[in-house]
Computed example of a mutant assay.
Amino acid sequence: MLDLIAGPSAPGQGPGPDSETRKRIATRARQTLLLDQAMLHERAITHTDPRDLLDPAGRLVPVVSDAWGAETTPGTTSRTQDQDSAEDHDVNDAYHGLEHVNAFRAELFKDSSPKGAGLVLRSTVHYGLHYSNAFWDGAQMVMGDGDGEVFNSFTSSLSMMAHELGHGLLQNTTSLAHHGQSGALNESLADVFGALVEQYVSGQDAASASWLIGKGLFTDKVQGTALRSMAAPGTAYDDPVLGKDPQSGTMSGYVHTGEDDGGVHLNSGIPNHAFHLFATALGGNAWETAGSLWFNVVNTSALPEDSDFGTFAEQTLLQARRQNGAGSMVERALADAWDAVGVVPRALDPARS
């Protein structure tokens, strides 16, 4: 296995990878860090009718399939309801991830049924050979095994699996364009969903949670803890090969770029950070008040396809007033969070008047 750390070799080790190998590894890794291929519409995929995945009680049934190293889906069914654990730990991890997401959705939306309630809980594992990515393909979660150099198997992170399933929820509730600020909102909402699922399963409140997305995905050769940090965007990794985490947590550091669909993964740190500040200011379990408010906004279908941060901030404040009354502690904490990251709600922005 290659030593990803650039510079002199450690005592007792052979030479590290040459510069071309480092470049190749870094390029491949950055593609994963910035491009999770959330909506891979160009693939022609045949899927099971979602109605076939409902049990008699109307609950969604998790189904995990194995692609056996091919870049096709769904693959061979490996585990579904009422089956014992498979011998393959990736199959089991994916299955439990689907179960956790299903349980969390029932908890989060217990007071209102989301339009995404028909989300198919299907996953394909072992997609491609050493495939270093995960994505939502428009109908299911698809997980690669990782290259063993930069990334472990993508089933090793519950927050990442829930992130991809979050894209499925968003696909069925709102159609935010995957470019610029609307795309960054899409990525942020999937991150929020991923973080909340992990916190729910771990029994962590807002104060004790790590707020990391993709914790455990990096191999021990990488100097980093996760793909992204919602608590401190820009600090998830700082590695000689991958470079430093480029995310910004405030509008003052907004990244203007033509890459990454206009910086959707780079600037998602701004609404991510706002949610973290809001949830920790409220205290308790982040999914109970902060998360419920966030996804009630999504479920109202009040967000235009080209929504920017200011539009979303305004809608969250309106939702806070609907749920808690004008001038409530919840509304004040939310206003403070948006102010801290430099996002001006649309109705309050003089530049829009």
Rank of each mutant, 00 (worst) to 15 (best):
H126S: 02
M230R: 02
G146L: 12
K221H: 12
F218A: 13
L4D: 01
W211A: 05
G258V: 12
A57C: 10
D36G: 02
A29M: 11
P62D: 11
S252H: 12
F109R: 09
N267M: 02
N186H: 13
D145M: 03
A117V: 14
T77Y: 04
Y131K: 14
A117D: 15
N285L: 14
L2G: 00
G144Q: 06
D111M: 07
S85C: 03
V297H: 10
R332Y: 01
M141D: 09
L318D: 11
L4N: 10
G183I: 04
Q31R: 14
D36Q: 12
V341G: 02
L119W: 02
A274V: 01
G243Q: 05
S307G: 10
L129F: 09
A184N: 02
Q247G: 04
Y95R: 03
E259I: 07
K215Q: 15
A139P: 02
V241A: 15
A207W: 07
M1E: 08
F154R: 12
M39D: 05
L176G: 13
T280D: 02
Y254I: 00
A347I: 04
M143F: 10
A44K: 14
L170M: 10
D220R: 13
D306M: 12
R228F: 13
M161C: 09
A94G: 00
L227V: 13
A207T: 06
H126R: 03
G243Y: 06
S9G: 10
S307T: 15
D205W: 05
L196M: 15
E198Q: 15
P8S: 03
G168L: 05
S123Q: 04
V63M: 02
D238E: 12
E305I: 05
E99D: 13
F218M: 10
G249V: 06
D55N: 15
A94C: 04
Q81K: 12
V142D: 05
D90V: 00
G216I: 05
T311V: 15
D336T: 11
H179F: 07
L266K: 14
E20K: 10
R352I: 05
A290D: 06
